[in-house]
Amino acid sequence: MAKAAVKKPASAPATALVECRPALAGREASGSNVKVSVLPPAERISLRAPEASVAALSRALGVTLPQKPKTSASKNGRTVLWLGPDEWFVIDEAGGNPLDDCTNAKALHSAVGVSHRNVAFAVSGAGAQATVSAGCPQDLSLDAFPVGACSRTVLGKSEILLYRPAADAFRVECWRSFSDYVFTFLTEAARDAAA
């Protein structure tokens, strides 16, 4: 766990007088060829907008909103996932505040802060794809789900967001209350990822 290196997310205001207690903070598990770790908090927004607003919102966020299904765009620690024809998921791991950035865009849209709604896991290593495939029914081969691909889908009995930052790495996000289930599932699956 790289505690020191993590920038404080914007939702952790300097004014906070109480402790922030992210779910499963610092937890990790390993299989022989894969590591599952809980990622530090990040800023997240759910962004909804018609096509006409895409350019303005891209400028406001500093990342071009991807318009092809299952694709993403990433710049300066900010990643935008295409989730639906008018829906994007913005993850900021660089301490920025995408919610504020959107407020400045005058184009029609809906931006809702959901930083605390999700918990993120990194699944990395040669067995990463096998680990996720234990519970995700999508074809995750590099041809079908290349680096940069993303999708809302399922893992076992939980809905997840799946994003592939590298050939042997996945980012799995789920709702906070499902994080224990998803982490346990990935941990169990990691045991079998060598097969």
Binding site: A134, G135, G156, K157, S158, S177, F178, D180, Y181, T184, F185, E188, A189
Partner: peptide, 12 residues
Amino acid sequence: HARGKLFDPTRR
């Protein structure tokens, strides 16, 4: 895998 803790998500 759907046994014990993984039978069904327990939400807290």
